[in-house]
């Protein structure tokens, strides 16, 4: 409870500093709008903001979902075969440092204008950190735990689901966190740099439109929803998964 209070106090003081600066008259509204104006715009535009947010989330879940499936398959194959492991590690060394957005011009050429290239870029951006973390997690399962499992008579899929995955879960969750962040980066960057089509644009398109209409409060309102979605994802979903699993099993400190 005390922690929540401190958290709110900190956010409130940030808002206060912002408001003081905005009201000082040092900057015009198009550079530095007041918090009141931002919240007002947020409420006024909420139907469009929510629509764009829903659209963005659909694209992210499509991209991230396929990245998770791909990562699980590739990481699993790497664990079971030395040859696959070497191939995947090499591929990862090549692809991991490439920002997904850099591939967007090529994705546009191959898949056309629309959401297909965006979903593919999201999947690409999230895939490599996911594989790296899942693979590391599976590899660092303590030998003693594996042996204990085998002595208890577990083998095959039961060994994987009862021993390996629980042991690797902290890494898998880290991978999801990084993948989630990179998916958002890819989505917003793709829509802002290359634009999107009006009927089917997400939050990146909203920011892009507001930018060109010079509606700075609208740009901040768009950022606000991205922050809110991020906080919900972090605190409501990932934290719950952690509390229900690794914290309960005491595999991490705190």
């Amino acid at each position: 409870m005390k922690k929540l209070f401190r958290y709110c106090l900190f956010v409130a003081s940030l808002i206060l500093i912002w408001e003081c600066l905005a009201r000082s008259g040092m900057y015009p509204e198009y550079l530095f709008p007041s918090t009141g104006k931002i919240f007002y715009t947020f409420i006024q535009d909420s139907s469009e903001i929510l629509l764009r947010a829903r659209y963005s989330l659909t694209l992210i879940f499509l991209g991230l979902g396929s990245a998770v499936v791909g990562a699980v398959i590739l990481a699993g194959a790497s664990i079971s075969s030395k040859m696959v492991s070497e191939a995947v590690t090499t591929l990862m060394a090549i692809m991991h440092p490439l920002p997904g957005i850099a591939l967007f011009p090529i994705a546009l050429l191959w898949f056309g204008i629309g959401n297909k290239p965006i979903v593919i870029i999201i999947a690409f951006s999230a895939l490599w950190p996911l594989i790296a973390n899942i693979y590391n997690g599976l590899r660092s399962v303590p030998v003693t735990q594996l042996e204990a499992g085998k002595i208890l008579g577990l083998s095959g899929s039961r060994l994987i689901f009862s021993v390996m995955i629980p042991a690797a879960l902290p890494n898998i969750i880290t991978g999801l966190r990084v993948g989630w962040a990179r998916a958002w980066q890819a989505l917003v960057a793709a829509e802002m740099v290359f634009g999107a089509s009006g009927g089917e644009g997400g939050l990146g398109w909203l920011l892009y439109k507001r930018r060109f209409m010079m509606q700075t409060p609208g740009v901040f309102a768009g950022l606000l929803i991205i922050i809110i979605i991020g906080i919900i994802m972090e605190n409501a979903i990932l934290a719950t998964v952690e509390n229900q699993t690794i914290r309960k099993w005491k595999t991490t400190i705190d």
Partner: peptide, 23 residues
């Protein structure tokens, strides 16, 4: 037409037109 708009810089729009693709 707001739902039909695609924001593309002139050169990219021109090449998409000449390829008769997407737009």
């Amino acid at each position: 037409f707001d739902d039909m708009l695609v924001a593309l810089p002139h050169p990219d729009g021109c090449s998409a037109m000449l390829a008769k693709k997407d737009i």
